[in-house]
Design a binder for these strands. Sequence first.
DNA 1: GAGTGGTCTAGACCACGGG
DNA 2: CCGTGGTCTAGACCACTCT
Lengths: 251, 251
Amino acid sequence: MEKAADTNGTGPTESAESRQYLGLRDGIASRISTGDLKPGDKLPSERQLQGEFGLARGTIREALFLLEAEGAIFRRDRSGWYVSPPPVVYDPTRWEGFMSYVEAQGRVPTTFTISTATIPADPLLSDIFSRPLGAPLHHIRRLRSVDGRAVLVEKLVVDAAITPGLLDFDLNTSLTAILKRNFGITVARNQISMQPCALTGDEAVDLRQKSGLPGLALQRVSYDGHGRVVEYDHEYWRHDAVQITVDLRVR
Amino acid sequence: MEKAADTNGTGPTESAESRQYLGLRDGIASRISTGDLKPGDKLPSERQLQGEFGLARGTIREALFLLEAEGAIFRRDRSGWYVSPPPVVYDPTRWEGFMSYVEAQGRVPTTFTISTATIPADPLLSDIFSRPLGAPLHHIRRLRSVDGRAVLVEKLVVDAAITPGLLDFDLNTSLTAILKRNFGITVARNQISMQPCALTGDEAVDLRQKSGLPGLALQRVSYDGHGRVVEYDHEYWRHDAVQITVDLRVR
DNA sequence: GAGTGGTCTAGACCACGGG
DNA sequence: CCGTGGTCTAGACCACTCT
């Protein structure tokens, strides 16, 4: 008996799902919405679900992938599947920085600096910062978490000429605050671009995600009051961790 | 011989990929980047790739899913896999509307009105529009395409009191233009919110996508110069069809 | 009707996580 | 060390598209 959907006598009994993984998806989703499973809770293992529902493991995984795409659950590599916490709201116009707005939402933000370096400007960066080729720029790579879960990696670049000694500060705090307090720099304008993307390579590794999972790529160029480029930032977010909100006047 | 990765004698010959689907992914990706495969081109069928690479179909599909998540390819249900065209750039602050900005990028926009209706305001909409419960609101559901490919479904709501007879116009054109020309309404402010999401149910059907594929959900509340709510809009985009760009002053 | 992707089965081994 | 998810095989039938 190598037939698959033998049970597909799908008599239109009620809302019988045509595809089994959709049924399983709905089952788990309702367990979450009723509060039977709460944010952070671990789901039964794939093999347990297999026994419980009498489906092949591939079918179980299909349902899990769907819930993952919907942002309802996430996985920790080779540890298990967990119920997702609610996303963080990110408003690029309210520029107090990550630490502030995450805290304002009653969550606990943390930052981990992965690496720092001062590197001569390449043609692209030289153009963005309007600085000569080879001018020194600070590169910072940071991992940011909410309630202990890594939600984004950022690679940011700052003009070293106007921020001497920046890398000696504790970068596991708010960069916005450091720039303001120690260098008198405030951001007046942001130019932002973003695309849904797949998290791959370094980003996936840092976020402890399996490569290829969906994410949101966000690039930001920040200007001060004089129109000078202050920061050039690339952020890679878990797709289920963020909601973007903007309020703006139309031109 | 039910062993899987027997070929995993992965001698570190060159950049041998540890996982076979990554190798296949790279192979197809490079065919795209060299121009061997161009936007719109059809990929070989899964079974052809199976023969060509000597992998099980599941493995082939894993590679295809990854490329899909990256936005490099897309599928037409039961027709095949195709190379993705470049995304459209969407700037919510430049409010000439979909038709204008798509054309400005040298692409061909089309709009198809799926349904229209005038419905009494429910509590939520009554609140958003600051209108009494039961006040008439126009509901419009449209499908919008670029170069013949459906890229987004939108469900929009407009206050019927200030747009009498709106549904009698040809809604397969620019709504922005209709509101301006025929009702003297212009948008002065937008409040936008967006989250990566999974396209499911009606949205997936309308976009001819398999349910569960990643997308971008965008909600917009538009105000006129008097602060009156003009439009309430929900858009569901294919994740690979759009890039959002915003330029804004920080508050 | 042929061909395509969509769904599903029933196994297997691998690599990593955590006690 | 064991349990977990990650990868992979080799089949099968189904539902739809296309010509």
